[in-house]
Amino acid sequence: YKIYPYDSLIVTNSISVKLPKDVDRTRLERHLSPEEFQEVFGMSIEEFDRLALWKRNDLKKKALLF
């Protein structure tokens, strides 16, 4: 996945969300650098992957990456 800054990946309720063209809309968190991922989620990507799907989705919603 290509890395993008968190600010360019957050999704708000506005209709005209302009995400970069090559971003996987269903896995926005994968486009964060490991350092920024840790900062946003408070855990590593590996720890995040071990969580239940509902928990990952809940965290993504709170981080505006859903």
Rank of each mutant, 00 (worst) to 15 (best):
S33T: 06
E35N: 10
D49L: 07
N57A: 08
L51I: 06
L64Y: 11
D24T: 04
F48E: 00
Q38W: 14
K18C: 15
R25E: 11
R25G: 07
H31N: 03
R30V: 05
S16V: 10
N13M: 08
P34C: 09
Q38V: 11
V23E: 02
R27Q: 11
G42N: 13
D49G: 08
L51G: 02
K55A: 10
Y4K: 02
L64G: 11
M43G: 01
E35P: 09
V11S: 09
D7L: 15
P20E: 05
L65Y: 02
G42V: 06
S14W: 06
Y4T: 02
K2W: 05
Y6S: 01
R50H: 10
L28D: 00
R25W: 08
Y6M: 03
F66Y: 15
E46C: 10
R56C: 03
Y1R: 10
F41C: 01
Y1M: 10
D49C: 07
S8R: 14
L9Q: 00
D22K: 03
V23Q: 02
L32N: 00
M43A: 02
R50W: 06
L59N: 02
D24F: 05
K18E: 15
I10R: 12
E29F: 01
V11K: 06
V23I: 09
N57Y: 07
L28I: 06
E47V: 11
S14K: 10
T26C: 15
V17T: 14
R50V: 12
A52Y: 07
A52W: 07
I45S: 07
P34Q: 14
F66E: 06
R25Y: 09
L32T: 00
L53T: 09
R25S: 10
G42S: 12
P20Q: 04
F41M: 06
L65G: 01
D7E: 15
I15F: 09
E29H: 02
S16P: 12
K55S: 08
S8V: 14
L59T: 02
E39M: 15
L65V: 03
S8H: 10
D49S: 08
I3E: 07
Y6L: 05
I10N: 04
Q38G: 12
Y1Q: 09
D22W: 06
E35A: 11
R56V: 04
E35R: 11
Y4L: 05
N13P: 11
V11G: 08
K60F: 02
Y4I: 06
L28N: 01
R25L: 12
I15V: 14
R27F: 08
R27V: 07
Y1E: 07
P5M: 04
L65T: 00
P20F: 04
E47C: 09
I45E: 05
R30A: 06
R30I: 04
M43T: 04
K2S: 11
Y1F: 12
K21F: 10
E29Q: 02
G42A: 11
L28P: 02
D49Y: 09
S14R: 10
P34W: 09
R56G: 03
R56Y: 02
K61Y: 08
D49R: 05
E46P: 08
P20V: 04
K21S: 14
D24Q: 05
P5H: 04
F66K: 04
Y6G: 01
S8P: 00
M43Q: 05
E47K: 09
T26S: 13
L65D: 01
H31K: 01
S44D: 14
P34Y: 11
L65W: 02
N13S: 13
R50S: 12
K61D: 05
D22I: 04
S14T: 11
D58L: 13
V23T: 05
P34G: 09
A52N: 09
D49N: 10
M43H: 03
S16A: 12
K18H: 15
L59D: 01
T12H: 13
L51N: 04
I10T: 07
W54D: 12
E36W: 03
I3H: 07
P5V: 03
Q38N: 13
L53W: 10
K62V: 09
D7Q: 15
E35C: 08
E39W: 15
L32Q: 00
H31W: 03
P5C: 04
L59Q: 03
F41N: 00
A52F: 07
R30Q: 05
Y4C: 03
E47G: 06
H31T: 01
D22H: 06
I3S: 06
V40S: 03
E46L: 12
P5W: 03
P34H: 11
S16E: 13
T12W: 15
L9F: 02
T12R: 11
L28G: 01
R56E: 01
S16G: 13
T26I: 06
F41S: 00
L19C: 06
S8G: 04
L65I: 05
P34K: 15
W54H: 11
I15K: 12
K62D: 08
L9K: 00
L9Y: 00
E36H: 05
E46A: 13
L59E: 03
K60I: 03
F66Q: 07
S33N: 07
K55T: 10
K61C: 09
R50G: 12
E29P: 01
D58A: 14
A52K: 09
P20T: 04
E47L: 09
A52S: 14
F66A: 07
K61G: 05
S33E: 04
S16R: 08
D22T: 05
L53N: 08
S44Q: 11
I3T: 10
A63V: 10
L28A: 03
L53G: 09
L28Y: 02
L28V: 03
Y4Q: 02
G42E: 10
E35G: 09
D49T: 07
P5Y: 03
S44M: 11
L19P: 07
K18G: 15
F48M: 02
I15M: 15
P34A: 13
V11N: 09
